[in-house]
Design a protein around this nucleic acid. Structure first.
Length: 511
RNA sequence: GGGGCUGUAGCUCAGUGGUAGAGCAUCUGCCUUUUAAGCAGAGGGUCGUAGGUUCGAUCCCUACCAGCCUCACCA
């Protein structure tokens, strides 16, 4: 028996030994069938949604009818009348059910539970205690829930402060059973609605500029475009090992060689590295390449893009993130990497040898090892000492050439490249450069990477001969950009863990 | 990978070297405008898994599994 079959059989035996609560619900299911009810209906005509009904209700207007559907999330039975709340896609609202009004459906209702999905038609009214509700004329079971849902209760006081009782808060359960999390924790839904707005507003912005949205391979014979270790997989028919992409960069630049006036891709990248609050093995990246532009132009585009997205998602340019308020109103601070290090540490790194850099790093308690080249040491100093202090959006510019093998050499500063990273809330949000389009220089940069790899740098890039061939045909001067969509969403939704902006974050398999 | 914390009822959590408790949920009864509904009663557990110490383990020890935090690694 292989592992997969083993897991299946465990699953089956789990289903067989259902607990009391599930047994009880299965009995109710049978009772309902005996009453002639199909517990899994085919459709229901919905014409209204909870929050719309609540928002538009007027006490002096003539009573109106509504047809709503949703999941029962609370239940108060009082003999021959009952109240329940149902949650639909827009919120939740109360339903009032009276036996005299709905007749035999009330007997069916007695067999329903929290978690069941129902359709209700009735009249909108305000109860004695002031809650706008639907007085049901009919009730229809749409889907019987046989597994008990956590019951989360909340109390709202006069000031509108919400107290939640028995929250569904176990992080493991919330991530593994996100469907339950979404049902009982409404703010989770809002985060993901905002995430969708991040993506759609990015698309809108770029489409309006006339850039072409494209798709490039996720299965690649050679990985590239970033410094990271890849996942490996195997194609049976070709009997060949492929890599899951760590970036889209090299393929998108091939399309610029092909003559497109700007291409972008929003897609998943995969990196075989550790997981923590800001890293998930698969994550979503926006990459954009525009010919005849450089990184200075790209800085302005990024300012406008993210400002546009912030407005679309949050309604304003100022966003509360943790204890900080981040203001995305352009223009943003621009400072070179070496200047920013000098500002924070007082150290001048320009022109220093690898040995000097290593000594400076140690002086500031930044760990370095022998596999690191000068570029990596500077990056380590920056990441450790400067990056966490950059809260407001800031462009860090002009990186050492050794750590940017795909970026063009700086037009006036030897040893540096025309590259910027956008830092925000202590993290990198975007990375961009004037793309290297000199095929000879690109080849020698790849060779430098190969040497780093030989020294033990597992993330060093590998030579991509086909990409070099494309550059040899000629690529126009091009500005390129990468934006981490997950991290942008984290900032715009004030979440401090990437797991809270990914529906199904990577977890060890359940056993 | 290192360190710390956690795992007990469907959910959230107490607790003890003598095989277990609360609130909510569930079930029974009463209740036709309630809302953390209420009142009265009842059921529900391989105390993460496997070993060990012990007369006896949910508790002590070891390993393992899973999660969270943190460091390392890493965008």
């Amino acid at each position: 028996m292989n592992e997969h079959e083993d897991r299946l059989s465990k699953r089956e035996s789990f289903e067989q030994e259902q607990n009391e609560l599930i047994k009880r619900r299965l009995e109710e299911l049978e009772e309902l069938k005996k009453l002639g009810v199909n517990p899994y209906a085919y459709s229901f005509d919905v014409d209204s949604y909870s929050s719309d009904i609540l928002a538009s209700f007027k006490d002096d207007a003539p009573p109106s009818d509504a047809s709503v559907a949703g999941r029962i999330v609370s239940l108060r039975r009082m003999g021959k009348a009952s109240f329940c709340h149902i949650r639909d896609s827009k919120g939740k609202m109360q339903i009032y059910l009276k036996r005299d009004d709905i007749g035999s459906a009330y007997d069916q209702f007695k067999l329903m539970d929290i978690g069941d999905i129902v359709g209700v038609k009735g009249t909108v009214f305000r109860t004695k205690t002031g809650e706008v509700s639907i007085h049901a004329k009919s009730l229809e079971l749409l889907s019987k829930s046989v597994r008990p849902l956590p019951v989360v209760k909340e109390k709202v006081d006069e000031q509108g402060n919400k107290t939640v009782y028995d929250p569904f808060s176990d992080k493991e359960l919330r991530y593994r059973q996100r469907y339950v999390d979404l049902v009982v924790n409404p703010d989770v839904r809002e985060v993901f609605v905002k995430r969708a707005k991040v993506v759609s507003s990015v698309r809108k912005f770029l489409d309006e500029k006339g850039y072409l949205e494209v798709e490039t391979p996720a299965l690649q014979p050679i990985y590239g475009g970033a410094a990271a270790r890849p996942f490996t997989t195997h194609h049976n028919a070709l009997d060949f090992d492929f890599y899951l992409r760590i970036s889209d960069e090299l393929y998108l630049k091939r399309l610029i060689v092909g003559g497109f006036e700007g291409v972008y891709e929003i897609g998943k990248d995969f990196r075989n590295e550790g997981m923590d609050k800001s890293h998930n093995p698969e994550f979503t990246m926006l990459e954009l390449y525009v010919p005849y532009k450089d990184y200075n132009w790209m800085m302005e585009l990024v300012e406008r893009l993210i400002h546009f997205v912030a407005l679309a998602v949050t309604g304003g340019a100022k966003v509360k993130v943790g204890k900080n308020e981040i203001d995305f109103t352009p223009p943003w601070k621009r400072i070179t990497m070496l200047d920013s290090i000098r500002e924070v540490t007082g150290e001048e790194l320009a022109g220093k040898s690898e040995g000097d850099l290593s000594a400076i790093a140690k002086k500031h308690h930044v760990e370095v090892d022998l596999s690191m080249g000068a570029g990596k040491i500077i990056d380590a100093i920056f990441s450790e000492l400067v990056e966490p202090k950059l809260i407001q959006p800031t462009f860090i510019t002009d990186y050492p050439v050794e750590m940017s093998p795909l970026a063009k050499r700086h037009r006036s500063k030897p040893g540096l490249v025309e590259r910027f990273e956008l830092m925000c809330n202590g993290h990198e949000l975007a990375n961009a450069f004037s793309e290297l389009n000199d095929p000879l220089d690109q080849r020698s940069r790849f060779e430098d990477q190969a040497r780093l790899k030989a020294r033990g740098d597992e993330e060093a890039m590998v030579v991509d001969e086909d990409f070099l061939r494309a550059l040899e045909y000629g690529m126009p001067p091009t500005a390129g950009l990468g934006v981490g969509i997950d991290r942008l969403t984290m900032v715009l939704t004030d979440r401090d863990s990437i797991r809270d902006v990914i529906f199904f974050p990577q977890m060890k398999p359940e056993k």
